[in-house]
């Protein structure tokens, strides 16, 4: 199914590649250490995904990009990005490799990095069309046994997305449509397909992590309802609500303290940015 691109598609790809090459050739390199300006100006080195809106992309259009810019300005630092797809090995290949110093968003109890104070708390949400008036708030709603439900799945590694576990536990299986967490990386917005599916009516309802749901819901032509799921923690221990922090290398307490001060000082500005991107908070 992936090998049947037609001629037109292929030429488009060529054009797209040229544009992308032109557009990005001026961006910062992976090793800002070699930059002479470092001697005169501080550099805030951020590890980020180059194609993962609403969080970040290499055109710096994500809310994490905006918050990074804000912090860099305050620290009188130049912003330098190390781009790497945020997948398994992301922390190892970027932050721990020493190429960059901060990841703008990690779960606050994530052990592979040293977290700052959390700067927002969001939840997985039920996404449905407003005109359907479903009003579903809980995984225990009996209608979920019948409705077609979109859920993001993870391939293996002994884990799956929290809603996939919650639904399976309740025997809700045959009416579930699986989407990958990664999406199609060729797309400018790999994360939007599951929200699009709700708007188009491919599924009746989807369960999506808040920031992704909020951002892509705003871009639909039809109104979508976003409702935080309940329970917030499914037994025995399956949380749907996560605090999100910035993450620095373990041991880098100096940078953490600076970022903690920033998060406190810029609380209102950060809230404004999160609002702008439609990030639901709980």
């Amino acid at each position: 199914m992936k090998n049947r691109k037609d001629v037109v598609g292929c030429r488009l790809l060529v054009v797209a590649a040229l544009i992308a090459a032109l557009a990005t050739s001026g961006c910062s390199s992976r090793q800002p250490k070699t930059d002479n300006r470092q001697r005169t100006q501080r550099v805030l080195r951020v590890c980020a995904d180059p194609n993962n809106l609403p969080y970040s992309n290499e055109k710096q259009q994500g809310f994490e990009n905006e918050i990074a810019s804000l912090v860099a300005r305050d620290l009188n630092a130049r912003l330098a990005y190390t781009w790497w797809p945020q997948r398994r090995g992301f922390v190892r290949q970027t932050l721990r490799h020493g190429d960059c110093d901060v990841i703008m968003g990690i779960p606050s109890n994530f052990e592979l990095a040293l977290p700052t104070e959390s700067y927002y708390r969001s939840s997985y949400v039920f996404v449905s069309r407003t005109d359907r008036r479903l009003g579903i708030t809980s995984f225990d709603d009996p209608r979920l046994k019948k409705l077609r439900i979109g859920v993001q799945m993870i391939g293996n590694d002994h884990v799956n997305s929290p809603p996939a576990h919650a639904l399976a536990k309740r025997g809700i299986i045959d009416n579930v449509a699986g989407y990958t967490v990664y999406g199609d990386y060729r797309s400018q917005e790999p994360g939007r397909d599951i929200v699009d599916a709700v708007a188009k009516g491919d599924v009746d309802i989807a369960v999506v992590w808040g920031p992704q749901a909020g951002y892509f819901a705003r871009q639909q032509k039809v109104a979508l309802d976003l409702v935080p799921v309940s329970p917030q923690i499914d037994l025995p221990f399956l949380p749907f609500v996560f605090d999100i922090s910035m993450g620095v290398r373990r041991g880098d307490t100096a940078l953490r303290e600076q970022l903690d001060r920033e998060i406190e000082k810029r609380h209102d500005d950060i809230e404004r940015i999160l609002d702008k991107y439609g990030v639901p908070r709980v």
């Binding site: 790809l13 590649a17 040229l18 090459a21 990005t24 050739s25």
Partner: peptide
């Protein structure tokens, strides 16, 4: 992701050469 591809290459090649490389490789595909 093509953008990121191009970006990493840009360390080694001039812009023109890079664009042609991308073209050639894609065309081979």
């Amino acid at each position: 992701m093509l953008g990121a591809t191009a970006q990493v290459q840009s360390r080694k090649q001039s812009l023109g050469a890079q664009a042609i490389l991308v073209l050639i490789a894609l065309c081979a595909g």
